[in-house]
Simulated assay, not measured.
Amino acid sequence: MDDILHGTLTSSPVFTKAVDLDSVPEGYEAMDEREAIKTLVTLDE
């Protein structure tokens, strides 16, 4: 996880969609409709 957070490793091959915490239902819908393989939930600090 540290490598991803510091930018030395990209998560793009794993996550095909990113959503914020309020959009989690949209992420699940995209996976259900096969528009996304894995959805990354981002948290704004």
Rank of each mutant, 00 (worst) to 15 (best):
M1T: 13
M1S: 13
M1Q: 12
M1R: 08
D2H: 13
D2Q: 12
D3F: 12
D3T: 12
D3H: 14
D3N: 14
I4G: 11
I4A: 12
I4K: 11
I4M: 13
L5T: 14
L5D: 14
H6D: 13
H6P: 00
H6W: 08
H6I: 08
H6E: 11
G7T: 12
G7M: 14
G7D: 14
T8R: 15
T8N: 14
T8L: 11
T8A: 14
L9R: 15
L9E: 14
T10N: 15
T10I: 08
T10Q: 13
S11E: 14
S11G: 13
S11R: 06
S11T: 10
S11A: 15
S12V: 11
S12T: 14
S12R: 12
P13F: 08
P13R: 10
P13E: 13
P13V: 07
P13I: 04
V14Y: 09
F15Q: 04
F15P: 06
T16C: 11
T16D: 12
T16R: 04
K17D: 04
K17H: 09
K17P: 00
A18S: 13
A18V: 12
V19G: 09
V19Y: 09
D20Q: 05
D20C: 03
D22C: 01
D22M: 02
D22Q: 07
D22I: 01
D22P: 00
D22S: 10
D22L: 06
D22R: 04
D22T: 08
S23A: 10
S23L: 01
S23W: 01
V24I: 14
V24A: 10
V24Y: 08
V24F: 10
V24M: 10
P25W: 08
P25F: 07
P25K: 10
E26M: 05
E26W: 00
E26D: 10
E26Y: 07
G27E: 01
G27M: 02
Y28T: 07
Y28E: 09
Y28F: 15
A30K: 07
A30F: 06
A30V: 07
A30L: 04
A30Y: 07
A30I: 05
A30S: 10
M31I: 12
M31E: 06
M31K: 06
M31P: 01
M31A: 07
E33M: 08
E33P: 00
R34Q: 09
R34L: 07
R34T: 04
R34A: 08
R34F: 09
E35V: 01
E35Y: 06
A36V: 05
A36Y: 05
I37G: 05
I37Q: 02
K38Q: 03
K38M: 04
K38L: 02
K38R: 05
T39M: 03
T39I: 06
L40K: 04
L40Y: 04
V41W: 04
V41N: 03
V41L: 05
T42C: 02
T42N: 02
T42P: 00
T42D: 00
L43F: 08
L43D: 05
D44R: 06
D44I: 02
D44V: 03
D44N: 05
D44P: 00
E45P: 10
E45Q: 02
